[in-house]
């Protein structure tokens, strides 16, 4: 039923072209550069390429045209119970920069619908559309735009929480403050992670901690693909990192494409706040 509707909508091809309300113009460009904080002087002569879509936005009173493929597909998925939406990715390609006075037109088509997929947010369908902006018959910019239409699930975004004991609470109190803490024995000074109540070197039970510099190198790592994990979008990387202080620690490695991760990659800790009660350490490329 969903696949059938998707096939039918995709087969319709490009929608009728919709003409921008205004030609490319300096006042709107200046509103944009002022708001974004972009002082690039070239935009006194050309429109910022990232404004391509702005020219054809429907605006406050505007309506999506009846043949808009995204609107039609969203209606089908709403009907099927996939009522929530979130944009996941986009890719804009700019063939040339536009000058004030040019009038653009846009046309969209449905590229594909895939699903149902189990995602961290819930079961859903990815809807991909492609739009092309024209001046006359010349394509000047293109965009792939993908949204996830999903049925919110009970586990959506539910983070897996650590069991915290009186031996480990200092660590989690630290992450909440943006500190990466390593247990340090109050007797012999040995650093230890994961922490515990009694020092295995000197058997004293006076643990303290030091705040780590937060830098280290990847000792090993994995790229998780299956199964879906609540609160995370696969594929994601989890890395075991050797800190400069000499202990190893495990956390998600973010902001680096899996293909670029390697043993020996230099990383620095960051902190990802899940909610008021839990902040996780994460690794980022140094």
């Amino acid at each position: 039923m969903i696949e059938e509707a998707a096939r039918e909508l995709a087969a319709r091809g490009e929608s009728a072209r919709r003409v921008a309300r205004d030609p490319v113009n300096l006042p709107m460009i200046r509103n944009w550069t002022e708001a974004i904080g972009d002082d690039n002087p070239t935009y006194e002569h050309y429109a910022p390429p990232a404004m391509a879509q702005v020219w054809t936005m429907p605006g406050l009173a505007g309506q999506r045209p009846a043949d808009d493929p995204l609107g039609a597909m969203v209606a089908v998925l709403d009907e099927a119970g996939y009522t929530s939406v979130v944009a996941t990715d986009s890719e804009q390609t700019y063939h040339r920069y536009l000058s004030p006075g040019e009038t653009v037109e846009v046309s969209s088509r449905l590229d594909g619908v895939t699903g149902p997929k189990r995602t961290a947010l819930g079961e859903g369908w990815f809807v991909t559309t492609r739009s092309t902006w024209y001046v006359g018959d010349e394509p000047v910019a293109e965009m792939m735009f993908r949204v996830l239409k999903f049925r919110p699930s009970g586990v959506a975004g539910t983070a897996i929480r650590p069991a915290v004991s009186s031996d480990t609470e200092f660590f989690w109190a630290g992450t909440a403050l943006g500190e990466l803490r390593i247990q340090r024995c109050g007797g012999c000074g040995r650093l230890r992670h994961p922490p515990g109540p009694m020092c295995p070197s000197c058997r004293q039970t006076r643990p303290g901690y030091v705040v780590a510099a937060g830098e280290g190198t990847v000792y090993s790592y994995v790229v998780h693909h299956h199964p879906p994990v609540p609160g995370r979008a696969a594929p994601f990387v989890v890395a075991l990192v050797e800190l400069t202080e000499g202990v190893r620690m495990l956390a998600e490695l973010v902001g680096v494409p899996p293909s670029e991760v390697h043993i020996g990659l230099e990383v620095r800790v960051g902190f990802s706040r899940v909610d008021g009660e839990l902040t996780l350490p994460v690794w980022r490329r140094r």
């Binding site: 650590p162 069991a163 915290v164 090993s220 998780h224 620690m249 495990l250 956390a251 839990l278």
Partner: peptide, 24 residues
Amino acid sequence: VDNGWHYPMGLVTPAASVAMFARR
């Protein structure tokens, strides 16, 4: 408590646990 150093960070299945050894 031991699992708190791994599961919340996204290492959540036996396959993932073994994969970390296997990579090294």
